[in-house]
Amino acid sequence: MLFEYSIKGGDFSTAGQASSRFKKVLQQLNVPPQTIKRIVIALYEAEVNIVAHAFEGTINIEVQPGYVVMTLTDKGPGIPDIEKAMEVGYSTASPKVREMGFGAGMGLSNIKNNADILEIQSKINQGTTLKITVNLNQENVIKE
């Protein structure tokens, strides 16, 4: 099964709508709640990152019997130093983003903690692609 959602950068009033819709899909597919939580937290963090840091983006999700692959591609400034961006506490978030309750520099590491595989590619002044894979057949493992 394939799903596609588009995301507008800078629009915090609609941020999270794609993650919310996909959560309902997972519930309909009877995925266990603990696994749903890992998937949608990773997805929501990545969606909010596009809203907070990029101009626009697309989410493509592939649901297979054993796993979910979520690919988020954005047009934006890109990430100059991915290793640094992964560090807890590193953030370039604007005051507006902080006002919305984000910008602690915790999102990418939280995505990594909830995902089984995280791949990040980025080109400066072009954009960023996150590929997040979560296995479906493991119960109650929230990695911390």
Binding site: F12, A15, G16, S20, V40, I41, Y44, V48, M100, G101
Partner: peptide, 14 residues
Amino acid sequence: LTNVQTIRTSEMAD
């Protein structure tokens, strides 16, 4: 914090 993301965050985090 009272904006839509408070509730979205809660929704995602169960």
